[in-house]
Write a protein that binds this DNA or RNA. Structure first.
Lengths: 368, 368
DNA sequence: ATGAAAGCGCTAACAG
DNA sequence: CTGTTAGCGCTTTCAT
């Protein structure tokens, strides 16, 4: 036993292993039937006489036999596997989607290949390629690939995209624009006039979508928006951006995602800036823990797990009816407003009357 | 385009697909060599003349040919795949491990099969079985299976266990006892005399380990421990447990994991109980977001991603030298103490002298 | 309802 | 260095 700074190590000698994998022939022989019958017993039980079936199944059970999917795929052309690629497992957004995807795949008796592309387009490409021959189709979440690269993959892979659109691939989308609109309307209703947006990754499709929605909603609501970014979609980037936001003297900030929103909250707390009294913070994605961790975060929620399920659903559909064309499914977002995210009320002149609304205090600070 | 409460749906007609998968024969024919040569070109390039190699590779490239792992595994017996089973992807603990595992596997040119057992032993068993024939080995994280069931799996699968020990399987362990000891020593040093422990799942090996470590450390430090549980390892359980903890009038609480610790913090905040002024909270695992989300959480950190890497390392080692026996690797935990987790100082009589230490205020409240 | 035979894509001897 | 041959475990005609 070695003891080191990082832990300890132990070794044991081996026990024997019963490694012989039983093949279909073995089962056939022991059951007194041909391999073809055993095969049928597993794939088309209806074609086998009850009596024979029982016998075969019994022998198989005894020998702990399970058909080899790899071998089966050789003849059938179907692997029964599905690939899922995500840019970063460290971003809680993706495990949530993965969970739904995995569950739906299992219901359809499919296994899931997982790959983490580390936000790296090259790697993403390589990973999909590597999977390609072992899976029936691939779900790519928040792809960092360019349109042409995706088209390339599309030539020999059935693809479903999550948070991305490309001709020829089915897609699941979070309704970013709608979520942003809700956020802006919410902030406008609370009296905010000047709002910051902390942008996500440069090549992120979602980020473009969100900014697009942001601009039109902001115009419609008469809210001024100051944009920052691009930033990596991480907690640390949120901390960093928080200082820029403060310097911009806005009364509210919308972050590209919850991770960054948490970073903002953390940094604002460090600097003694009150949330929501001085600045309101809105996140995006509603990763479960963000809402748990702090009551001061308004967030745009998307049904992540459901998104994963739907994506796999689309993929399965696509595999079942290869000629049937692609589908796109949008998932609505929903702004989550919590008790402790409204600033104190104050009186505001609305047209000819004075109305009592939740008002951003930073404004009055600026005035004083 | 359909619009529904949850979103929208779109359909497109299909573009054509270039689905013909090129086989090794095709490449061989076009390169004017035998299939065996093509095979060698990919698996043992050294055995092929430079000139031929170039030609083969060129043709393969042009045809976008990649060898089929499934077919290859048929003859070689090795799949180049690794399975990873986790009890719940919703628990941030596991994605972190998964990330490391996935990265290490990729370095070794292995693909990863992922399965979520939903904390269900039956399902876990089934999933491992289903994977078994498609992978070279399986990493089971925090297995919920009994020892005999694991032994059963061990008969025909190479297993590596994370946070679990069983004869015949390599294992990676977080040094729970050490972490708990650090936590107790820390609390004792701050003057805590009465500490609550919120237990994890009933069948969790980690939970047993932590309780074991807890008892001995508590005894050594003269700290009284009140145990609660078992609880599901979730945020909500933490909220629930918080009330029990408060009723037990302790001055500190250690939670089975960070998720539960966050639940405790949330509930204490709801009830207006000060952390750490009235109760100190210690978590476990150091899932990245927990520490980010709140500055009031003392936590026992474990290098999660590294654990995943090491686990795969062990698995690969095992696969490379099948006869060489199992290994166990322990990963040390490290208590993370933050600025805002110490209660205010107060004077305490230590033997004959009076010492100034951080003191749990709840004690004095109880005294008043 | 069952069996015999051919072959899926690939590799592993064994010759040359 | 390269080709030939014989399967790996399974499914799938085509007979029976």
């Amino acid at each position: 036993m070695t003891v080191s700074a990082t832990g300890f190590t132990l070794c044991h000698v081996d026990a024997s292993r019963d490694d012989a994998v039983t093949s279909i022939r073995e089962v056939a022989r022991r059951a007194g039937v041909s391999p073809a019958t055993v095969s049928r017993a597993f794939s088309e039980p209806g074609l086998v006489r009850q009596e024979t079936l029982q016998r075969v199944l019994a022998v198989a059970e005894e020998l702990r036999y399970r058909p080899s999917r790899a071998a089966r795929s050789l003849t059938t052309g179907k692997t029964g596997n599905i690939g899922v690629v995500v840019p970063d497992l460290g971003n809680p957004f993706f495990p949530a989607i993965l969970k739904g995807a995995q569950a739906r795949a299992r219901e359809a008796d499919h296994s899931v290949f997982l790959a983490d592309s580390e936000e790296n387009p090259r790697l993403e490409m390589e990973l999909v390629r590597a999977m390609a021959r072992q899976v029936d189709g691939v779900l790519i979440c928040s792809s960092r690939l360019s349109e042409v690269e995706l088209q390339k993959l599309l030539r020999d892979t059935t693809l479903v995209l999550l948070n991305r659109r490309v001709a020829g691939a089915s897609a699941v989308q979070m309704d970013s624009a709608g979520g942003i609109r809700q956020a802006i309307e919410h902030l406008a209703a609370l009296g905010h006039k000047r709002v910051a947006f902390i942008g996500g990754p440069a090549h992120s499709w979602s980020n473009r979508e969100r900014r697009r929605g942001l601009r039109s909603s902001a115009r419609a609501q008469g809210v001024e928006v100051i944009e920052f970014g691009p930033f990596a979609p991480h907690f640390e980037a949120g901390q960093q951006a928080a200082d820029l936001v403060v310097a911009a003297s806005v009364t509210a900030v919308i972050a590209f995602n919850d991770l960054m929103a948490l970073g903002v909250l953390s940094r604002l707390a460090d600097r003694g800036i009150g949330v929501p009294e001085q600045i309101s913070v809105v996140g995006f994605d509603d990763i479960p823990m963000a809402s748990m961790a702090t009551p001061h975060l308004t967030t745009v929620a998307v049904p992540l797990e459901q998104a994963g399920r739907v994506a796999i659903e689309l993929l399965l559909e696509r595999l079942a009816h290869p000629g049937s064309g692609t589908h796109e499914q949008g998932l609505a977002s929903q702004l989550i407003v919590r008790a402790s995210t409204a600033p104190p009320f104050s009186d505001v002149r609305a047209g000819s009357r004075t109305v009592r609304v939740g008002a951003p205090q930073a404004t009055s600070v600026a005035e004083s």
